[in-house]
Design a protein around this nucleic acid. Structure first.
Lengths: 346, 346
DNA sequence: TTGAAAGCGCTAACAC
DNA sequence: GTGTTAGCGCTTTCAA
């Protein structure tokens, strides 16, 4: 409980000045080897721990970086965060993590917290592409490097790591078309449960789906894309239950994310509608659930580990060279075909 | 990019001393209302933000608390953490989060990080009840309050929030017995996939299972409890596959956690063994997956939100009154019976 | 190679 | 009510 030892305590015991002790501890050249050793020994003996706050105050650094994510409950972001922590903690940084429950107001508060904590850099997956754009810009202008991962705000000039949501959405949709045609349906109706309008990648996924249908002259017709209120399992269940009630179950369903897909599958399952025979289902951003439902859910898998690590490295690069160029990394993803969309892989 | 304004800047502009500015900003009484207003206005105009590091250095506080959890990927801990953050951030604390991938060495490093960051309190769910006990004690002795949640180390004198793992495990097992007997099996064989030996609650769950069987004169026999190497879905799948291969599938299976249970269900499913007709399955610590598998998985649900909030409050109490007594809160849980163990709820 | 002194931005006695 | 001063623990000139 009693005060931690300081460099002054060490200096006194050794009859040195605190400057020398500081230098010895910091590894600054220009200290007699013998002296340095004595200091190091004494520090160890006294269980000396440097006071980061004091050090940071003089250097006006914090060695903290901030991570801001929309939510925490889907294990998607946590897995990315682990990698971010690995990169930064091994370099002596602490990582301040906040989640904002998909509320952009909360996201703004989190950013303020970051600012107040004087983080040296920010990694963010945005809750809304647009609502806080000005804040991102201000932060950057004030000298806090900021890097987007997964969900970016393309209107802001900052480095980012994403996947090509449009492309993979397009592929996923084409796969659904093929699988239906293989089953003999020449003109399958392929619906989309789409995500929020104010998330860039949600729009990309929507366009991917839409363009794929257009390419194959399959629409889309009005009403083929349904806006999900939340992007949760419950909402997927609700939407599909409604369609079942109205008798408008399509031949295939492409969802903005896995929870929506899994929820839809549940409703179908309960209604006795067989997947993939009657309807093929496809998710996005492969989650744990994909491998747990039966049949297993086809989905687009993102390289989470790589995304976290890349984002961390991009931020580090910006921190070390603030004037370095903005780079937008687009990682590869993969289309994992499983039982929910392919009878053969059952 | 240019340096943030300080109280000195404000003081200069206003022809005041920095002390007065400090007092005005801090809300200390003894400042003329007019002066205070002027300071506040100027601060706002200059976009003044207090420098926490400086403030903390003088007060020798950090306003940071640390959270240490075994892992991040099961959404179990993230959901608890959200509540912890709610409690502390609304009180002006930052929350430093670390996960240790179920490695006690990593946990130790995380604790060192906490120490170096001079956190004012620690909330921890231990990776191993035992390996770091001395460290916990040292931390507490040095004046850092520490509170266990979910997984505690009972050998350490510190407040904790848990559920009664023994009791719920006992109940869960009795339920399995009843459900089998209802189906006409007088002497069902009920196995257990047990968790690591060095986690207290894993042993509690084991004893709950074992005692329930003993009470009903059903063993357990040697070999009825199988030690899981990991507590993952993959391991559950592996263990059950092995049993299927050997033809030793029991009448019911009680698992240390949901991932093990879900993995086992997958193996059974693939082997065409019907749940719950041929075998009833039960998990623990209800996860998202429980509601996603079919049939849905019976499990013991913990009140995650309450656990997080309670843990936070206990820590807060210790921080405010370091000499206050240690309290061990045991929260209520619930046994959620679903299709995997009850034909009627299918 | 080492020491003295100034200062990071803020708070808190202690004066006036 | 307000200013002066000392100091939190450390780094970093500048001298010696």
């Amino acid at each position: 409980m009693n005060r931690n030892p300081t460099i002054i305590d060490i200096a006194r015991k050794l009859g040195l000045s605190k400057s020398t002790v500081s230098r010895a501890l910091a590894g600054t050249p220009g200290v007699k080897e013998q002296t340095r050793q004595a200091v190091l020994d004494m520090a160890a003996a006294m269980h000396y721990r440097p006071n980061y706050m004091a050090r940071n105050l003089t250097k006006s650094r914090t060695r903290i970086i901030g991570v801001v994510v929309p939510e925490f409950i889907n294990s998607f972001f946590p897995r990315i965060i682990i990698q971010i922590q690995n990169v930064f903690e091994s370099r002596g940084y602490s990582v301040l993590i906040t989640q904002c429950d998909n509320s952009w107001e909360a996201e703004r508060r989190n950013l303020q917290l970051m600012e107040d904590s004087m983080v040296e850099g920010i990694l963010i997956s945005v809750t809304s592409s647009g609502k806080n754009s000005d804040y991102y810009r201000t932060l950057i202008a004030k000298g806090t490097p900021l890097v987007f991962f997964n969900r970016s705000d393309s209107s802001v000039d900052a480095s980012s790591v994403t996947i090509d949501d449009y492309k993979w959405s397009f592929f996923a949709t084409e796969h659904l078309i093929y699988t239906r045609r293989k089953a003999g349906q020449e003109r399958p109706r392929i619906m989309h449960f789409r995500g929020p309008l104010d998330i860039d990648l949600s729009n990309s996924r929507f366009r991917g789906w839409s363009d794929a249908l257009a390419k194959h002259h399959l629409g889309p017709e009005a009403g083929d894309a349904v806006m999900a209120r939340d992007i949760t399992r419950e909402e997927g269940y609700r939407l599909m239950s409604e369609m079942i009630g109205k008798g408008t179950v399509p031949d295939a369903l492409f969802c903005f994310n896995d929870p929506l897909a899994v929820g839809a599958m549940k409703a179908l399952h309960e209604a006795g509608i067989v997947i993939p025979d009657r309807i093929a289902v496809m998710g996005f951003s492969e989650s744990q659930s994909a491998l747990v439902v039966s049949p297993e859910l086809s989905s687009v898998a993102q390289p989470l580990e790589e995304m976290g690590e890349t984002a961390a490295r991009l931020l580090l690069a910006k921190m070390e060279a603030p004037d370095s160029e903005t780079v937008r990394v687009v990682l590869n993803a993969s289309l994992n075909i499983r039982g929910s969309s392919d009878p053969e892989s059952l």
